[in-house]
Simulated scan of single mutants.
Amino acid sequence: MDFTYTETQTMIRDTLSRFLSDSYDFDSRQKMIASEAGRDSGIWRALATELGMLSAPFAEAHGGLGGSHIENALIMEELGKVIAIEPYLQTVVIGGGALKTVGGAVADAVIPGIIGGDTIIAFAYAEPQGRYDLANIRTTAKADGGGYVLSGHKGVVYCAPWATHLLVTARTGGGQRERQGVELFLIDANLPGIVRRDYPTVDGNRASEIYFENVAIPGDALLPGGIDLIEKIVDEATVAVCAEATGVMAKLHEGTLDYSKQRQQFGQPIARFQVLQHRMVDIFMEVEQAKSMTTYAMLHLDKPAAERMAAVSQAKAKVSRGAKFAGQNAVQTHGGIGITQELAIGHYFKRATMIEGQFGSADFHYDRFERLAID
């Protein structure tokens, strides 16, 4: 298949790559993580206003560039190369993806804020008992007059400390694991009754445990589409994470290859040892296969649900295994220094490890693909 990028897509990738190489080196990232805020808000603002990156996948009617999943994947891969802590996945891919799907007044009102860098969305969907089951939800949204009362607990909500809005899954009816009754709400992150416990994650990001204590939300906070909409945006997010993984894995390969050429053993660089040459090739092959499978899944995101889900599961299973292989072999080649705070390779390993299970482990996606094939 001849898959080439357009001139605009190539420009987006190259422009972002140059910007990140200048402003997102390893030392700068470490300073951001160590700061009280956990980020440099100026970078997000620059991505929005100076580079226009946040507008890439949105329609021209909303002030966007008219792009699609391809632009999201290109941007996520570049962010992966610097293990960026920007909330692009949560805000643009997930939040923006949901709004593009439902359209209407809510999309017209919120998308311009995303493009301008003023709106940051956190996706509050995971619950302690839920594992990867999107329908295993205890959080409830009970009808109250013209609105709802939201109650429950969401765990590991990435970028919630910075969010202006929360995209929340909650149950309006049905039993705990039933698909019927699961809905998606977009709410103000500062409503009375929302309690957050913020903390750093192992990969350098910030997340929160969020408790909804009888939070009154308006009726128009409900985004139509139910569990089908939730599955769609999670599949889109999964492919975006796969694209990020290709950037992370590429840097793991690059850093390990460079180190093997520098480290001396028995009077020669260890890169001359045949077993390590094979290892470098194996990591490289995992990177290339991850890119191919990510592209395959990306091209299936607008297909019917079963076809989309099967393609996404194939890609995520492969990428999860590949990220694990690349990360572990990179650290093993470096030895003990590979997991120190001072060396970048250890931080890439941490992000690769988190990606391995994000939105479903390899085993989960093998199982989902098998169920889809049987059905």
Rank of each mutant, 00 (worst) to 15 (best):
D2T: 14
T4N: 11
T10Y: 00
D14T: 02
T15S: 14
D22G: 04
S23E: 15
R29A: 10
A34C: 08
G42R: 14
A48T: 12
L54S: 01
G63I: 05
E77N: 06
K81G: 13
I85L: 12
V92D: 00
I94C: 02
K100L: 13
G103T: 10
A107Y: 04
I111P: 00
I111Y: 02
G116N: 13
G117D: 10
A126K: 08
A135W: 03
R138I: 00
A141W: 01
K154C: 03
V156G: 00
V156C: 06
A160L: 07
W162Q: 10
G181E: 09
I187E: 04
N205E: 11
K232A: 10
E236T: 12
C242S: 14
T246D: 04
G247V: 02
A250I: 00
Q264N: 13
R279K: 14
V281N: 14
I283Q: 12
I283V: 15
F284N: 08
M293V: 11
M298R: 15
A305L: 11
A306D: 13
E307V: 15
R308S: 04
Q314C: 09
S320Q: 06
V331T: 01
G335V: 12
I337V: 14
I337F: 04
L343G: 00
K350D: 08
T353Y: 10
F359L: 09
F369S: 04
R371V: 08
